[in-house]
């Protein structure tokens, strides 16, 4: 299909307009974050440029601490999930072992479950472990995702069997085949999973909110959620905080868009 020039010009113009409208809230965020105390709430025009001062004000509170906790949570969960999902996803795809169907069934069964629905059972178990107000309580229940195992499994199904067999013929044990042959081949899927999990935990409000009562353990999302009550109508500081928390995901997207797309389109596209 080779659409006419007019069609292309009209659709490109319409889509450009759509994108510009969609970016208005982002622009409003930046312009209010840059403003001083006397903010014009509409954020259409820049009222001076006080961004550096606002950032300092935001971090003057406990924001540095929250940032550190967010990084700890996001990196820990992403690392653990990648390591464990790589092993289990590969095993489910390429090895026969007792309990394989049961494990796969559990993974499938929990694929669509999101934190709000499972938070009560998780909270009760973490509480009985005595893990309220601990890092392990925030990290461990989030650290294994059905999506991760599923994603790695789907990807591992596509690894050419000859590569694995060649290593086996050379006398490598199954664990060694996994470590030296399969693991490097799984890298694109693992990068995708790392990115998705990092973004998910970076934005995770609910679970840390339940587990971390101690302010020293708060993450950025909790800090932001309570910002309103603490700073009243300090809109420019709220927007500065929103800007700060948005920067890492946007940078990651700019660098790794390919892997992000790969994760999102998993299974949605016919191979």
């Amino acid at each position: 299909m080779t659409p006419s020039r007019t069609y292309r010009i009209v659709t490109t113009a319409a889509l450009t307009l759509l994108v510009l409208v969609m970016l208005i809230p982002v622009y409003v965020m930046v312009s209010i974050a840059a403003a001083g105390d006397d903010t014009d709430l509409r954020g259409i025009t820049f009222n001076g440029f006080h961004l550096a001062g606002n950032v300092a004000d935001v971090f003057g509170g406990s924001f540095g601490r929250f940032l550190a906790n967010s990084l700890i949570l996001s990196f820990s969960v992403a690392f653990i999930d990648v390591a464990l999902s790589a092993a289990a996803g590969y095993a489910l795809a390429r090895l026969r072992f007792p309990g394989r169907r049961l494990l796969f069934g559990t993974v499938i069964g929990t694929l669509a479950l999101a934190p709000p629905m499972i938070m009560i059972p998780m909270y009760v178990i973490v509480r009985s472990l005595g893990w309220i107000d601990t890092y392990q309580g925030m990290i461990a229940p989030m650290a294994v995702s059905a999506l991760g195992v599923f994603l790695v499994r789907q990807f591992a199904l596509g690894i050419p069997g000859e590569l694995l067999d060649a290593a086996r013929v050379d006398g490598a044990g199954e664990l060694r085949v996994f470590r030296t042959v399969a693991f490097p081949l799984l890298r694109p899927a693992l990068l995708t999973l790392f990115l998705l999990q990092f973004l998910a935990q970076w934005d995770n409000l609910l679970w840390p909110l339940l587990v971390a009562n101690d302010r020293d353990l708060w993450t950025l999302p909790i800090g932001l959620a309570t910002f309103q009550t603490e700073h009243g109508t300090n809109y420019h500081l709220m927007m500065t905080a929103a800007l700060i928390i948005s920067v890492p995901p946007l940078l990651l997207l700019a660098m790794l868009q390919r892997y992000y797309v790969a994760g999102l389109t998993l299974g949605g596209v016919k191979k």
Binding site: A87, Y90, P98, R100, I118, E174, L175
Partner: peptide, 20 residues
């Protein structure tokens, strides 16, 4: 193969049992 499969999937299985 079965031994390797169990070894590799045990951590995930344990997590699923404890937290789900």
């Amino acid at each position: 193969t079965a031994g390797a499969g169990i070894t590799l999937s045990l951590p995930v299985a344990a997590f699923f049992v404890v937290f789900w």
